[in-house]
Write a protein that binds this DNA or RNA. Structure first.
Length: 511
RNA sequence: GGCCCAUUAGUCUAUUGGUUAGGACGUCAGAUUUUCAUUCUGGAAAUAGGGGUUCGAUUCCCCUAUGGGCUACCA
């Protein structure tokens, strides 16, 4: 038998565990959420664990709000993480509460000379940094004040002052080669890498210390994160080798770019594509939810962004997304978000998604718009069913259904219709008068009777005029449906609108 | 500047050595619909450029260009 090497077998050897580790520096945007989603689906596919960790080693501003937002956003996007053994806590791993753990490993690193003290200030180093090629590592570390250059007494003196950082000692002139599951082999020489600061002068660890340690302690098997980490991964690997730990597998995801300027969504663009999932207080006020996206459509958008062919599948539920998951589906190049494509996904959810849920959401929205008017629930649902296939976003429902609730305030007539009115003023006037009389006479009308009445009108221009008198312009669903629904809402609406239109037509009399 | 990564129509992508380079959204034209939207039919539109390797390169290698990332006591 020839062994078949594929990812499934490699993964199945032990339970896989992945993690999403956002830094609470601001609201979680679609890029971060997409990383979380990939982690989540990956874990579910292979029946593993998906953990949440907050990477907040040295963060002050917006921290609390950001964490709240992260939890809300994950919940809204239906991304569920394992809560671990303590179910009362929302989050099991918060780095700011684990500083003592990092210090333990830090001591080990220093003892074994894998890390060392350094005393140069930022100001001093900045002078060297004027040379853009400057690097603080085996090439230059002899020039500076640190454990290697100072004698024991001097080191003690500096340590007493308590102003020091701890740097990771990067090995001399060595090629670090690692395999990324998506990008393949990555090779970086250690001469390109700084002796990274892993412990700050304010006694807090940096990402380069805390994150790898946590990943090990959390038994993470696959590091799934954005591509921006591709060239800093060697630091991670060096640290793991120093600590003699098993290096996890790496899956780096291509970045999300803005539609127009090609810059990363994290930094730019608030105009065209929404980048946040939901609104939250004043923290976020332009989101997918706010702009009328369904959360299930949003999940499909996340699926699109990790390589699913949404054109083929139209709309997918979580179960199917998990079933169809293949880590290879994502491709290497960065993704430009196309807003129209996202809208299409939302529209597909309206057309092919859960009918009850779609109708309910549209009902809630419409209800909020027509608070003043007393219209029966049943009728609103009927309106929704007749109009919803014309919209792409939830908020659009008002644009295609408003004429059921408010009388036209103005009339927009195309040129040929205006000409028709002027040339056939008497015919038009008689037509409207006849209609008024008809609807006045027949206060009880079935849909069939209305249909017969409309179908008798053979003149296209008069039909168009009829529609304009009811709707205000040449848009909307089938005229028979419009009239029969308006009739159900109130028997006198049609007559009222016809009379209004008659007054308007009067302007054309003198032409 | 250095290092790392990417590059198929406007956009998302299929084709991992042999295809008339396929699909979808968008766009344009026509048909249907009493209007509009839908739907249907059809059209235009791409392997960044230049060198190799090969009988043959979108696919493998090199150079250039473009875009992005990293180059912090941010993550």
């Amino acid at each position: 038998m020839v062994p078949i090497y594929n990812i499934n077998i490699i993964i199945m050897k032990k339970k896989i565990r992945v993690r999403f580790a956002p830094s609470p520096t601001g609201p979680l945007h679609i890029g971060g959420l997409r990383t979380a989603f990939y982690n989540y689906i990956f874990a579910k596919k292979y029946k593993g664990d998906f953990l949440l960790r907050i990477d907040d080693t040295d963060i002050k501003r917006n921290k609390k709000l950001s964490i709240k937002y992260i939890l809300k956003a994950l919940k809204w996007s239906k991304i569920k993480y394992n809560k671990g053994y303590n179910r009362d806590k929302d989050i099991q791993y918060i780095q700011s509460k684990r500083i003592h753990i990092y210090k333990y490993y830090l001591n080990y690193l220093i003892k074994n000379k894998y890390a060392y003290y350094a005393f140069d200030t930022v100001k001093e180093l900045n002078l060297y940094r004027k040379d853009k090629n400057f690097i603080y590592n085996f090439l230059t570390r002899n020039k500076f004040k640190n454990s290697f250059t100072l004698n024991k007494n001097n080191i003690k003196k500096y340590l007493k002052k308590k102003k020091f950082v701890i740097r990771l000692k990067i090995p001399t002139n060595k090629n670090i080669i690692y395999k990324d599951e998506i990008f393949g082999n990555i090779k970086i020489n250690t001469k390109e890498i700084d002796d990274k600061i892993i412990f700050r002068s304010n006694k807090k660890p940096t990402y380069h210390l805390a994150s790898p340690i946590d990943d090990h302690l959390m038994k993470i098997t696959h590091i799934i994160r954005g591509k921006e980490w591709l060239s800093t991964t060697p630091i991670y690997i060096i640290l793991y080798k120093y600590l003699n730990w098993k290096i996890p597998k790496f899956i780096h995801l291509p970045l999300l770019l803005n539609n127009k300027k090609g810059k990363i969504s994290k930094r730019l663009n608030y105009n065209d594509v929404p980048i946040y999932p939901i609104n939250y207080k004043n923290f976020v006020n332009n989101s997918y939810e706010y702009n009328g996206f369904f959360r299930y459509a949003f999940i499909n958008i996340l699926a699109l962004l990790i390589g699913y062919d949404l054109i083929k599948y139209k709309i997918l539920n979580i179960k199917k997304i998990i079933k169809l998951f293949n880590f290879k589906n994502i491709n290497k190049s960065d993704i430009k978000i196309n807003y129209k494509l996202l809208c299409t996904i939302n529209k597909n959810f309206i057309l092919y998604g859960n009918k009850k849920y779609v109708n309910y959401k549209l009902y809630i929205y419409l209800r909020s718009k027509i608070n003043k008017y007393k219209v029966k629930k049943k009728i609103i649902y009927k309106i929704i069913n007749l109009t919803k296939d014309r919209i792409t976003l939830i908020n659009d429902i008002w644009n295609v259904a408003n004429y059921f609730f408010i009388n036209p305030k103005k009339y927009s007539l195309p040129q040929n219709i205006i000409k028709y009115i002027i040339n056939n003023y008497k015919i038009v006037l008689n037509f409207i008068n006849d209609n008024i009389i008809y609807f006045n006479k027949n206060l009880v009308l079935s849909k069939k009777e209305i249909s017969n009445f409309i179908n008798k009108i053979k003149n296209v221009n008069l039909l168009k005029l009829f529609r304009i008198s009811i709707v205000g312009e040449l848009v909307g669903i089938n005229l028979v449906d419009i009239i029969s629904i308006l009739y159900k809402i109130n028997k006198f609406i049609i007559i009222k609108r016809l009379i209004n239109f008659k007054k308007f037509i009067f302007l054309y009399k003198n032409f």
